[in-house]
């Protein structure tokens, strides 16, 4: 599409009226902000967006337990393989004899997510066949060194907590 430029008359070509008009606009904003009105800055550590975060917000990935207190992850390692920056490291273990959930067979012994590498893509949540890993609303992940940035299993469960109402496929067969 060709947009025809308007021919400017000589007053407009002087630019000065337009510049003065612009100065008037910025002055209005300056004056209003000086009186404390219309300032939209959010003072971060004191004021946060947390209450406004949407349900689908993709924060830090976490592990969840179900209503029986069972860790949902079965150590299939699909998330470990799909994670683009390879932030996840899982060490699987066999669930020992005598455990009520023995038939699940596998659980993670160690589950580390390196938050210095995670890109919050959400692929791990998408790929998980057990609905065990979810991206929750924590976004300010800090640490003083690289080791502190690794979330171990305990931390992941602490952040994830319990999630109910998910598919449960380990019932006794009727």
């Amino acid at each position: 599409m060709i947009v025809n430029r308007k021919k400017l008359n000589w007053v407009e070509r002087l630019y000065l009226p337009a510049i003065i008009g612009g100065l008037a606009i910025t002055w209005k904003h300056f004056q209003r902000s000086l009186l404390g009105k219309g300032v939209i800055t959010m003072q971060y550590p004191e004021e946060k967006w947390d209450a406004h975060l949407p349900e689908w917000y993709r924060g830090a990935p976490t592990l969840v337990k179900d209503e029986h207190g069972r860790e949902k992850c079965v150590s299939c390692q699909l998330c470990e393989f799909i994670c683009p920056p390879r932030a996840i490291t899982i060490e699987p273990m066999e669930i020992p004899e005598g455990d009520p959930w023995r038939k699940v067979e596998k659980a993670p012994r160690a589950f580390d997510i390196d938050m210095a590498r995670c890109i919050y893509c959400g692929l791990c949540e998408e790929v998980c066949p057990e609905q065990a890993i979810f991206l929750r609303k924590d976004y300010s992940i800090t640490g003083l060194n690289r080791n502190e940035m690794i979330h171990h299993k305990e931390k992941l469960y602490e952040l994830g907590g319990v999630m109910t109402g998910l598919v449960f496929k380990w019932n006794e067969k009727k």
């Binding site: 910025t26 904003h29 300056f30 209003r32 902000s33 000086l34 219309g38 300032v39 939209i40 003072q43």
Partner: peptide, 10 residues
């Protein structure tokens, strides 16, 4: 400061 105030910031 002035640039911030002109742009409705702090």
């Amino acid at each position: 400061r002035v640039s911030a105030l002109i742009q409705d910031r702090l």
